[in-house]
């Protein structure tokens, strides 16, 4: 039993209770008058001074912008600066006129381009996530099973690419995948193919780019769950007559589900909204929703439609984010 476990738990009366809904992962269940706030409670106005700056900053620069996006998504497009009509208008004699326009959302639903891009983003993200899982699982498993001496170095090797420029890593693939690129040169040289393949500017290149960029996000949570797992569980399974592969299927795999979900969400969520990879590696017919948003905004200067796309993207991401949060919360309890 740990020292903490022996502690008189009278001052944590809620310690065993499920945290209330608004608590983020890993927060302690100390009572409001409990010891945890002691330090800042004792400084006059301390809590206020600590809390106010981040609160104000996020309110002004994070929450407010989304209200503006929502507002503009409901406005009508016009040619001019700004390129949309105001929602509120002081018509004559001080009568406030409110013009809500759902036309932008109707456009999204009726124009095939948007619907296709939307579905294609989900498809590309889902397939990439699956590929990441297939490649990442053996890697995470291998690292978790490696000796203590090598483990940290291997982990470092997984994390390192994340610290180097994302843009440069995507760019590196352009040189490899293009028609006269290194991969084609290699394949022609070995005689596997006789005509260069068109890989760059296809969906395949986008898959490669996403898997490559997001693989560490899959490996790390998987590693974390696999490493935590009690090895004696496997030994118990062997002892009870389970062959290693069966033991893997019936013990290791089910127990690593939380890591699989966390890793999948960490890949899926950003992949849905990915812009740089489809823009650089994909072709003109690689439809992804973030690319459409970009071109609506920068090329067509249609702010209201771009805003409506942003709102629609957010709606699509609510479900996976909820799943992710749910599993995170369970993992920290």
């Amino acid at each position: 039993m740990t020292a903490a476990g022996l502690r008189d738990d009278a001052r944590h009366p809620h310690a065993g209770a499920a945290p209330s809904g608004d608590m983020g992962p890993g927060l302690r269940g100390d009572g409001g008058k409990g010891p945890s706030g002691t330090l800042f409670r004792r400084i006059p106005g301390g809590r206020f001074l600590v809390g106010l700056p981040p609160y104000l900053w996020l309110g002004l620069f994070f929450a407010l912008p989304f209200l503006i996006v929502l507002k503009i998504s409901l406005a009508e497009t016009q040619i001019g600066i700004p390129p949309y009509k105001p929602l509120l208008d002081w018509a004559q004699a001080g009568v406030l006129e409110v013009r809500l326009n759902l036309g932008n959302y109707r456009t999204l639903l009726t124009d095939d381009l948007y619907v296709l891009a939307y579905l294609n983003s989900l498809k590309i993200a889902a397939v990439s996530t699956l590929l990441c899982l297939l490649i990442g699982y053996p890697m995470a498993y291998g690292i978790a099973r490696s000796s203590d001496r090598h483990r940290n170095a291997l982990l470092m090797l997984v994390v390192l690419p994340f610290w180097t420029s994302f843009l440069i890593r995507v760019y590196a693939w352009m040189g490899i995948l293009k028609t006269e690129g290194l991969l084609n040169a290699f394949l022609l040289w070995t005689g596997v193919i006789h005509e260069p393949l068109q890989i760059l500017e296809t969906d395949l290149a986008v898959y490669i780019g996403i898997v490559y960029s997001y693989l560490p996000f899959m490996v790390l949570p998987l590693y974390a769950t696999l490493e935590k797992m009690d090895r004696s569980l496997l030994e118990a399974a062997w002892d009870l007559g389970c062959r290693p592969f069966r033991a893997f299927l019936s013990v290791t795999l089910p127990l690593s589900v939380p890591g699989m979900v966390a890793g999948s969400m960490l890949v899926f969520i950003p992949a849905v909204g990915e812009f740089v990879i489809p823009d650089l590696l994909g072709g003109p017919d690689t439809l992804m929703i973030a690319k459409i948003l970009w071109s609506e905004f920068f090329d067509n200067r249609d702010w209201p439609v771009a805003s409506a796309i942003a709102v629609a993207m957010l709606v699509a991401l609510v479900a996976p984010i909820m799943i992710f949060q749910h599993f995170q919360k369970r993992a920290t309890e």
Binding site: L6, R7, D8, D9, A10, R11, K33, P35, T38
Partner: peptide, 18 residues
């Protein structure tokens, strides 16, 4: 026993709890 309030009493003596 654990939860009987003994630690809380001690912490009140220390001033860590009011």
């Amino acid at each position: 026993a654990s939860g009987c309030g003994k630690t809380t009493l001690l912490r009140m003596l220390a001033g860590l709890e009011q």
